[in-house]
Write a protein that binds this DNA or RNA. Structure first.
Lengths: 237, 237
DNA sequence: CGGATCTTTGACTCGTCTCAATGCGCGTGG
DNA sequence: CCACGCGCATTGAGACGAGTCAAAGATCCG
C-alpha cells in the first residue's frame, strides 16, 4: 500500500561487487548469461521492494544486502517466509497472487529482470532452465526442513537451527554469525514471539553455547552442542 | 527396516479405474504419454512402499488409494510430510537422500516409472517438463501454506484448515469429508498430538460445525464458520 | 465372543504467549 | 557535549493452550 518507492538509480554499472558476486561458488557461470540484461536498483533499509502481485511482473536477484519476504495478517501477525542474501533470486517460484511482500532488511542493491525475460532465456537455454528447476527443488527441500522445525521443535531447538543455518551461510566454517535482521524478524520466521526469542538467546548465552557481542553479532562457542540441540529429535531413526 | 514388501502383482492391466483417472480434470491429456510406460503394483494397507533412499530409483503415480510420506525421528516422533491421492506423483521433487519414506494408508494401486524414464520423457517433451515444473511450484505453494499453518495457527484452526482441504479434495463442493487416515496420521501431519486432535474434533462437533459419523466420515455442517476458523489470522491484511 | 487397535476423555504439567515494566543504544536537538 | 526521546531488546509475573500420562470406550476382525 504505502510502499516506499525505489530510490531509482539505474546508474551504477555492473562492476566491482557484481563481478565478485557472480564468481561466488556454485554454477554461477550459467548465470553469467544474465549479465547486463537486468536493471540495477537500490532500496534503503526497511523500504518495500514489492507488494503482493507485483511479483508476477519482475524477478529480482540480490546483489548486496538482505531482504525478507513476508505476509501480514488481519490480526497484525506477520509471517516471514524467508530471508534472501547476496545471489538469491526473489520471486522465482511465486505466481501472481501469492500475497508475499518483500522488504529490505538492510540497504540493498538488486538486479531486476522482467519475468518474460527470464522465461525466454529459460526456454532457449536448458542450463538456465535446469538451474531454475534446481532452485525450486532446493526451495522445496528447505521448506520441508522448516516444516519439521515448526512442527516438532521447541524454542531452543528452533533458534539453534536458525543460528547454525545463518552461520554456514555468512561465514563458512567460522563460528561467527552476523544477524542483519532484528529479533522480531527472527521471531516471525521461527513462529515464536520476540520475548521468547530474546529469552532463548539469553539462555543459550548462560549455557555458554553462544556469546552475544551486540544485537547483530553472535559468536558460536560450542558448535557441537548447538548442533545436537538443533538436530534434537530431527535425526532420522 | 522391517518394511512389508509389496504384494507384487503386475498382473492387473491398465483398464477401468486407470482410464477413468487420466480423464480427471486438469491437463491430464499431457500425461497420457505416460500410458503403458509404467508397471502397476499393489500394496496392502499400512505396508511400506519405499523407504528413504529408494526414492531416487523410481517415481510412482497413485492409481487408487491413499499414501503418506513421512519421517521417523530418534525419539520416536513421526512427521508426516503429506498425503497423496489418486493422480498424485510420489517422489517427484525428491532427490536421493531425502529421508522420506512412503506407506500405504489404504490398500493402494500405483504405477511405477523409473526416474530415468521420466527424465527422458521430460527432456523430449516440453509439455511434460512444464507439467513437472508446475508440480514443483504447486508443491512450494502448498508448503508455504503449511508453514503459515504450523507457525501461526492453534489446534482448532489447524484442524479446520485440514478438513476444508480434504473436503475440496475428495468431494468437490459437497460438505462431506472422507478421512482415510487415522487420528494419529492427522496429528503427525498438523504438528499436534492425537489427544489434541481428538479433543478438537469433539469441540467442533459440540459447536455444530461438523458432524462425525464414524472415524473416517465427517460432514461439514457450517462451512462458512469453519472457513473463517481456518483462515483465522491467515487472511492477508 | 474376545482381543487388538484405535479413539475419546480426564487430571495434571509444562512451555510459550501475553501484558507490563525496565534497560540499552543511538540519533537529534538544545 | 549532554539530555532527551525513540525504537528495540530484555526481564518478570501470570494466564492459557497443548502435551503427557493414565484410564475408559469404540470399533474391527478373527
Amino acid at each position: 500500500m504505502n510502499a516506499t518507492r525505489p530510490t531509482s538509480a539505474r546508474s551504477i554499472p555492473a562492476d566491482g561487487a557484481f563481478e565478485c558476486e557472480l564468481s561466488r561458488g556454485g554454477p554461477d557461470s550459467i548465470l553469467r548469461v544474465l549479465d547486463g540484461k537486468g536493471t540495477i536498483v537500490h532500496f534503503p533499509r526497511s523500504s518495500m521492494i514489492f507488494a503482493e502481485g507485483e511479483t508476477s511482473q519482475n524477478i529480482y536477484r540480490v546483489l548486496e544486502g538482505v531482504t525478507r519476504s513476508f505476509r501480514i495478517f488481519m490480526d497484525g501477525r506477520r509471517h516471514i517466509a524467508g530471508f534472501s542474501f547476496t545471489g538469491d533470486f526473489l520471486g522465482l517460484g511465486l505466481q501472481d497472487e501469492h500475497g508475499l511482500s518483500e522488504e529490505a532488511v538492510t540497504d540493498v542493491a538488486l538486479i531486476l529482470y522482467s519475468r518474460k525475460q527470464i522465461e525466454l532465456l529459460a526456454e532457449s537455454d536448458p542450463a538456465i532452465h535446469k538451474y531454475i528447476v534446481k532452485a525450486l527443488v532446493d526451495g522445496l527441500a528447505e521448506s520441508q526442513s522448516r516444516l519439521v522445525m515448526l512442527g516438532q521443535q521447541n524454542a531452543e531447538e528452533r533458534l539453534a537451527w536458525f543460528l547454525l543455518r545463518k552461520a554456514s551461510r555468512l561465514a563458512e566454517g567460522r563460528p561467527l554469525v552476523d544477524l542483519p535482521m532484528g529479533r522480531q524478524d527472527i521471531a516471525d520466521y521461527l513462529g515464536l514471539t520476540i520475548e521468547t526469542v530474546s529469552r532463548v538467546f539469553t539462555r543459550l548465552k548462560r549455557k555458554r553455547l553462544i556469546d552475544i557481542f551486540n544485537f547483530h553479532q553472535i559468536r558460536i562457542l560450542n558448535e557441537p552442542a548447538l548442533q545436537s540441540l538443533a538436530e534434537g529429535s530431527r535425526q532420522a531413526a
